[in-house]
Design a protein around this nucleic acid. Sequence first.
DNA 1: GTCTATAGAGTGATAGAC
DNA 2: GTCTATCACTCTATAGAC
Lengths: 190, 190
Amino acid sequence: MAGMKETIKTVAVDLFYRQGYFATSISDIAKGCGIQKASIYYHYPSKEDLLFFIMESTMDGLLDHLKAGLAVSDGVEAKMRAAVHGHVQFHLEQQKETFIASSELRGLSAEHYEVVVGKRDEYEGIFQDLIKAGRKQGIFDTGDVKILSYAVLTLCTAGAFWFKAEGRLAVDHIAEIYENFVLKGMKKPV
Amino acid sequence: MAGMKETIKTVAVDLFYRQGYFATSISDIAKGCGIQKASIYYHYPSKEDLLFFIMESTMDGLLDHLKAGLAVSDGVEAKMRAAVHGHVQFHLEQQKETFIASSELRGLSAEHYEVVVGKRDEYEGIFQDLIKAGRKQGIFDTGDVKILSYAVLTLCTAGAFWFKAEGRLAVDHIAEIYENFVLKGMKKPV
DNA sequence: GTCTATAGAGTGATAGAC
DNA sequence: GTCTATCACTCTATAGAC
């Protein structure tokens, strides 16, 4: 069921996460899979392609997760809460993959870079549209839309990495803390 | 006045920032300095030592900047504003160095890693003490001290990187935006 | 689908001349 | 303080046997 192609991906994710993409060799990955390094090239055309495969599927998963969360929420504030909650949740549950996706962009070729950054921009765009809608309805405070969206995303991304590492709190609890912090920073003072 | 040792550091900072530490070779640095790669080793014992030299001096500068800002501020809220303002300012003005310091920890040896992380912990500790003091005085909302300090620092660090890149706003203006966003997220609702 | 063997290039670092 | 030359090693990737 698993298959060697999946095993290679899993081992690569673990090593890229722990050592970084450049510090990990094809040899390391092969050793982790219990095969010879030449066998890697039967499944993936190159090391860079393996990285791209990991990043692209992670970004697709992240986008799907966001869209699914928004589909079942009504109103701007509820949608923003769902977006933040889903973001934190996905980053906690797929910590290795999302860490790689946000820190190894430099390892990609120009063409692959465009594809991944395109997906990232689409993701950020959804948050920015929510902020704009909230301001139009007078729910959110005025302020630079890009500054706010970057602030929210960074905050939650980094938060997810740290708190998984500390292991003190449950996923939903962590997501809730960020949900409240962000909404508080964004909403108009009553 | 400059000296080759400084030139090497400057070129290395630029390349580590643009390409990353692992993707930059001693050869690249030498080319950028207009010398042969063997000459690098007269000034620095190894590539890793050069990275450490850059990171350590950056962390020292960051700590000094913070302490200087706190020394001329009175009261917890003013000190927190000064801390955030100084943090953003330093990250904007020494963007390359601070980016390296926060993204290339994996390149350090175990001993050097301890030194740099020790300075980072001292820096974070100052923010955490400010949050604790603010809560004791009833100025700041209750909430996990570590979560808050991480949130503040990440937010401001990442913000500094983005807005320098966009070049739309002046340093003090950017610092002020973050100062307000953070204090708003942290203060007790009146 | 995995193996052995190797090509071909680049790496960090050192020795010793000047 | 910088040079040329080189060592010893590692890297990604390929060829061809099984």
